[in-house]
Design a protein around this nucleic acid. Sequence first.
DNA 1: CAACTTCTGTCGATTGACTAGCAAAAGTCG
DNA 2: CGACTTTTGCTAGTCAATCGACAGAAGTTG
Lengths: 411, 411
Amino acid sequence: MQYESTKTLCFTMRMVDISRGSALGTSGASELFQLLRDGRPRTRAELATVTGLARSTIATRVDSLMALGLVSPVGDALSTGGRPPSRFALNPSARVVLAADLGASHATLAVTDLSGTVLGELREAIDIASGPEAVLSWMVEAATTLLARIDRDHDELVAIGIGVPGPVEHSTGRPVNPPIMPGWDRFDVPGWVQQHLQVPVLVDNDVNIMALGERAFAWPNAEHLMFVKIATGIGSGVISSGRLQRGAQGIAGDIGHVQVARGVGIPCHCGNRGCLEALASGPAIARDLRKAGIDVATGSDVVDLVKRGNIEAIQAVRQAGRDIGEVLTTAVSLINPSVIAIGGSMARAGEHLIAGVREIVYTRSMPLATEHLAIVQSSAAENAAVLGASMLAIHHALSPEGIDALATPAR
Amino acid sequence: MQYESTKTLCFTMRMVDISRGSALGTSGASELFQLLRDGRPRTRAELATVTGLARSTIATRVDSLMALGLVSPVGDALSTGGRPPSRFALNPSARVVLAADLGASHATLAVTDLSGTVLGELREAIDIASGPEAVLSWMVEAATTLLARIDRDHDELVAIGIGVPGPVEHSTGRPVNPPIMPGWDRFDVPGWVQQHLQVPVLVDNDVNIMALGERAFAWPNAEHLMFVKIATGIGSGVISSGRLQRGAQGIAGDIGHVQVARGVGIPCHCGNRGCLEALASGPAIARDLRKAGIDVATGSDVVDLVKRGNIEAIQAVRQAGRDIGEVLTTAVSLINPSVIAIGGSMARAGEHLIAGVREIVYTRSMPLATEHLAIVQSSAAENAAVLGASMLAIHHALSPEGIDALATPAR
DNA sequence: CAACTTCTGTCGATTGACTAGCAAAAGTCG
DNA sequence: CGACTTTTGCTAGTCAATCGACAGAAGTTG
């Protein structure tokens, strides 16, 4: 009976976590680690002055972090007349995370280190409609292959980030009412994956993780960033106050079905009319060009035409940019971001699309809102998703709780 | 020389705060207090099981909170056969905060307790354009008057929340480029006020604090809420993931100058054309009605007409609702809120405005986004701003840092 | 090479948060 | 009214984190 009650206590303790020492022997090492997360090398003395703790305290904490391998010496700093202090920094290769980008027809799986550097990648054609078990089985298998290929043990894996093409209840990792993922509705993705790989699993919408990826890649200091993906569909991921905003149902940023002025009457596959997606998505532009007698089948064809300098295609893409800009103008007023990054397959059409977006946003917005606003093509491009999934996993793994979990021997 | 370095250490300690015990003797009382913030009474045993700490530990912590007056006994709970446990809860009247709503022509100052209950209020005509010193001097003076009137000492004041009609850099409390507040640009409001009243001063945009007020009053569990103020101008405050979103320049939510379809060509005072504010604000509706030969001067007149059942006025207000709904549709897709509360003087026109908003939002949005979306008239109404300012102050005062500051004798 | 400076690792001492146990208090139940 | 139950306040004790100091290591400077 005593054991039972103790177990209950442990559980509630985790839920509230008021107790002082987190993991046995680890003390406040996880808090100290937060200072080192940025990867910048520091000396013990620097850490001592910054934290206000004694040098000896820092020493023991650094030691425990080094014992975990998370922190490594990075040579000595310059001497100021005496013995030069040694410097430490996050050791990105201490552990690895898995980053998966599951698309409708393709999946990419990568292993990255703790800085997000891709150590190994695997890309394969899948059918997301074949259901969660099939897709996730492939993922788990591919993970083993990939880890073996780069000669890393399963023990070194600390977290998994997964992006899926549909809305996700991020707290539980369950897709909710996904339009193009039959069989995935409310499926417990983390639960299933954890049966095979015993590490935390973070799931999110693909556009959301692309926003994370873009930020990590190109805008590490942007607290308010919006990533707009323009491909078969149109969606966006919103980072506000440094945090991904998911909304009440996890569908925040879903701007594909906002009505735009030029769209009057044009039917959208969602059942409504005049949606942005029915006007400015890859298929929509291709359709418009076909009406004008130009032989294009897909958005990809449109991009090719644009790259070859076809005037009609360029004009169509630019107009799509204007339509998107119309919606983004409202977004600029509402979110007041400092960066809007445009990605997705149609963004490969280069500056024409962005030019259309800028044209409208800069004309229609309040000067203050656009003064420091950058509207740019995604730099991370096709790597955005995997990088973002990696970031999702890394952020979790390197959080105080994540570090404490690593320090606890019994996993 | 030793003293100097010690002082520096103290400063940096505050910045990072890794050290264990926060204030002398207080230990983790501030963390325990976070559990009691909701005002619900609890027994020592309950707190012990929830936190996982020993009963004796809880006892000492509760004692220190009671010594500060923040927590008070609230009678006994039901006996389960033995001595009935005593229950404790947040004592809202332990301290007071000041809540100021500074408008263009009027200012309201209130003293509230820690639950946001107004203990005393003062309203006066001011001219915000008379500059920060004049307005804030009045505020400080009024504060003293108000505190004396309700027989409270300055010592009991723990924080001040101020709402101003313009964008604010919340981290510094400085207004930035406010259009209607000449002389306030980059003025250090907290610094100035703190010279007279030595407590933390929180400043924010008036619409932002109205969002906070509305949430506190009517939607305590809404993590994603949008407050739209429709009066002389149109603006909104956005709460996402439970936090007020301010954006890169502190102008997030500023939807007044988004273009809407019906507005083609209509000039706005911002210099652009077709802005929402030029169509759906109080003055705009009045202007349209005047064109139709109806004798109205202000938005307030329009509201009066609507209340008397004037068809033209009702139609105009409903159309304004539709225009606003057009912008809010994008907001719904982007933010995915669970509540949109409509306030401001024009909201007094009742359901007609809201009906127009609903008509458009529910028609044009994706079903999933509106499934659990409430679009309602503000319940807090004219009290929203003061209540929100109070919340801003209370949130700060009751945060772990705030409690620690209260516990530290030397202020 | 000697004197000096600065960093590193270790160890004992301190501190204070937390716990456990007990007697008294304040109820309920028969 | 007495037996029983549960909470409360108190006290002494435990334990882990942190600190300060010291000796040794590893440099610089003249």
